[in-house]
Design a protein around this nucleic acid. Structure first.
Lengths: 243, 243
DNA sequence: ACTTGTAAGATGTATTACAAATTTAAACTA
DNA sequence: TAGTTTAAATTTGTAATACATCTTACAAGT
């Protein structure tokens, strides 16, 4: 009797059923991206439900990034672009943020970023190069006492390289991680003295390889750069907890 | 007059303001995961808004996976776990799915999976090993005419290795990709003849390296395995479009 | 041609009422 | 007393109506 009588009533609320119907229509391109949805009144009539139930379904869809609602104007199908996915990942990392997420993030960076640098060397455009170069210059020129700006620029450097791959999946994977790094600054970045000079040199090396489209060199340079970050992290753990 | 008269109204709807307030409370752990929210009526009183506006805010939060609403019972703060993030990524890939997503996915796999195999060699447990071994055995024994099962097992193999890293970020990155692969089967997998034997051999090689915790060998074996996949893909493109 | 005013149409919010599910506690039975 | 049933109270879900606010289009006026 366990398996027999389960799942009879769908247990979904009416507004959830409506949500799924519209979502399915969007996924199947029956409602193509950019098209306008019928008005609320029309949809109420079509589904045969009250405006309350319909609107709650629409709120769900807009919260998830599937549609966009403009007061006075109407509703349009919005595609669900890279930024929506990145925001969701941001939320995830925010909720999961704790001490033991840090080693996991470092692990992923050491795993992926050298490869990313290698791909960037192959795919980068002139725009990418000038963006990275500008970032390096800003980093070099910034006040050594301004730890916040310094580490922000450092993160931006890695972000720009990820974007230079021109692969949106790489972006979605890495951008939420970079936006999380500022919160780890107190754990890692601040504990070093002559950090800035060494970082600047590393960045130059990486940029040079990407500029010259030397795939292997870029991978290697990024690898060594992150190895140093890891050493700093380990040193921090040592000085803080071991005593 | 440029700076003076800009940005007066926040342009956020009331329900969006409410959504952000509650979201902030959750992110700041003022509403810890697992705790129950006040009832709708209480929240209406607290915020001084109508039930309509409040409920639309709550619909948004539940759609995004931040809270769970149970009819008759109440509302609780849910964790926003790995599965929520994966579902979002699934939606993204579903919406972006087109011809040129395929090369991007292949690119990411060739970029990341060898590294993942290397990490798996270091982190795998006995459970991981037996799971992978079972998968290999099922693959070997499956009917060669059952293309569907065959490619599902193939995907599962790679999924198990990603899990063997025991790094949730790796999971979130790769799992949505694997769940997308079945839709690419028609594009890639089916066009090969003696695919199964070769795949089986490759999988054995990779497993062996992971089993013996040989980091470099695992990376290399996975690399070669994916190179072959890429060759198949190129061959498919050639035979299909070029003529 | 440009600005302003007006009306129509769309989404946003408020209110009231009731339906349906769950929880709680009382009443009842063995 | 322990367990079960019943009933009431609580909570979320849906409906219906009214009005507010924003957008757009178009007409009117300068």
């Amino acid at each position: 009797m366990d398996e027999l009588f389960t799942n009879i009533g769908s247990k979904l609320t009416l507004s959830q059923k409506i949500e799924r119907k519209i979502e399915a229509a969007i996924r199947e391109k029956k409602l193509p991206v950019g098209s306008k949805l019928p008005t609320e009144r029309e949809l109420c009539g079509a589904f045969g439900v009250s405006r309350t139930a319909l609107r709650e379904a629409l709120r769900r869809l807009s919260a998830r990034g599937l549609i966009e609602i403009t007061k006075g104007s109407g509703m349009t199908v919005t595609g669900f672009k890279v930024d929506d996915a990145i925001k969701t990942m941001d939320l995830y990392y925010d909720m999961q943020f704790d001490q033991n997420l840090i080693p996991q993030i470092i692990e992923v960076r050491r795993l992926f970023e050298p490869q990313i640098a290698g791909l960037a060397a192959a795919q980068r455009t002139q725009n990418d190069l000038s963006d990275i170069q500008e970032n390096i210059e800003l980093f070099r020129a910034c006040d050594p006492d301004n730890i916040q700006l310094e580490s922000d620029l450092d993160n931006k450097f890695h972000l720009l390289i990820a974007r230079a791959t021109h692969n949106p999946i790489v972006q979605i994977t890495m951008e939420p991680i970079y936006s999380l790094l500022p919160r780890m600054r107190n754990f890692i970045y601040a504990s070093v003295d002559d950090e800035k000079e060494v970082t600047h040199e590393s960045h130059l090396l990486i940029f040079d390889a990407i500029n010259k489209q030397k795939h292997t060199d870029a991978t290697k340079a990024m690898n060594e750069h992150l190895d140093r970050t890891y050493e700093i992290y380990k040193r921090y753990l040592h000085t803080t907890f071991e005593k």
